[in-house]
């Protein structure tokens, strides 16, 4: 029954581009897909391994800039540039991960935040390479041989195929030895270590994996908008990724899609609604609502929304303990 529902849902979803003729809605689904890639990775790091990153937008940006710089300045093929967009953030994560992940809780939060800001400063100031605050234009379309991703509906399928692959990967990871080791670290790092788990290695692997996915998403993003500038890769984006991961629910496969979908939908609705209610308001006023939602979710449902309707009692209990467990 459940799988039948999933299949029907999947088919309807795949047929979407045929009856959604508006490019606006299609582009929203593409953006949701791209963010989902990042948040799935962050979900592994936060929900499975119990570590936090307030600098995920930096990896997203490194992936995007890798594509932009390699294709326009060095004339790499679009596919090899996309591979580089995944590998480069992973390498950066591997380099900074070991010393950074030794830190706990608030210190880890601060260190990743500082890393994110540092990378963002580099995007702004490294003019010769990144084009500075005004960014870079002329990124070519992604092309596999004759298949050129130059239309929104092609991108829709590309992005959601990638999301599907990541879903399968995350599901398998959750059931594997590494996934179990990650959850053990989340519950108690000391106990995990006592049971022979190489905690620093597993945490590093989770960090690298999250950077890899963020880089992939960044590369795809660059090919989608064919223009890049530092503004989407700043601190507010890192926070938004954490918000999406937390709202959707940590440690689940569906949590990230749910979180991303809700945040993107809410942000679009607010963009449309607020000018009607408060005509004088200007700027990113919708952040008020994100802040309030974040507070409410953390107070009333710290395990996230996707824990709500399924396996209620045990899941809620286990989930509620999740963020708490990382405390001690």
């Amino acid at each position: 029954m459940k799988s039948a529902l999933a299949v029907i849902f999947g088919l309807v979803f795949l047929a979407l581009p045929f009856f959604v003729k508006s490019n606006y809605f299609l582009s929203i689904f593409i953006v949701i897909g791209i963010y989902t890639l990042v948040v799935e990775g962050l979900g592994i790091l936060m929900g499975y391994a119990g570590q936090v990153s307030f600098g995920q937008a930096a990896f997203f940006g490194i992936g995007g800039y890798a594509v932009a710089i390699l294709t326009t300045r060095f004339h790499w093929g679009t596919v090899t540039a996309l591979v580089a967009a995944m590998v480069l953030p992973a390498v950066v994560a591997a380099l900074i991960g070991r010393p950074t992940l030794k830190l706990r809780e608030v210190y880890l939060a601060l260190a990743t935040l500082a890393f994110g800001l540092l990378v963002h400063t580099f995007f702004n100031e490294g003019r010769e390479l990144t084009g500075g605050p005004s960014g870079m234009t002329g990124i070519p379309y992604l092309a596999f041989g004759d298949l050129v991703f130059n239309r929104d509906f092609k991108f829709f399928y590309l992005v959601w195929a990638l999301v599907l692959l990541v879903f399968l990967g995350v599901r398998n990871l959750g059931r594997s030895r590494v996934g179990r080791a990650m959850r053990a670290i989340r519950e108690s790092e000391l106990a995990a270590e006592a049971n022979g788990i190489d905690t620093s290695l597993i945490k590093l692997q989770a960090f690298i994996f999250s950077a890899f996915l963020a880089g992939l998403a960044g590369g795809v993003y660059a090919y989608y908008v064919t223009f890049i500038s530092p503004s989407p890769f700043g601190f507010h984006m890192s926070i938004q990724f954490v918000l999406m991961a937390v709202i959707g629910g940590l440690g689940t496969i569906w949590g990230p899609v749910l979180g991303v979908g809700l945040v993107v939908a809410l942000s679009e609705v607010l963009k449309w609604l607020i000018p009607k209610l408060l005509p004088s308001a200007g700027g990113e006023y919708q952040i008020v609502f994100f802040g309030i939602i974040l507070i409410l979710v953390m107070i009333f449902k710290p395990e996230g929304l996707s824990h709500g309707w399924r396996r209620k009692a045990p899941a809620a209990e286990e989930g509620a303990g999740r963020l708490k467990a990382t405390a001690t």
Binding site: V52, E105, V106, A109, I239, V242, V246, I287, V288, F290, G291, I292, I293, L294, I295, M298, I299, P302, L323, K324, A325, T326, A327
Partner: peptide, 17 residues
């Protein structure tokens, strides 16, 4: 009673609001 991490996220929410 939440973890330090949850509390940080809450103060970030406060800051954004």
């Amino acid at each position: 009673d939440a973890s330090p991490l949850s509390l940080i996220i809450i103060t970030i929410g406060v800051s954004i609001s």
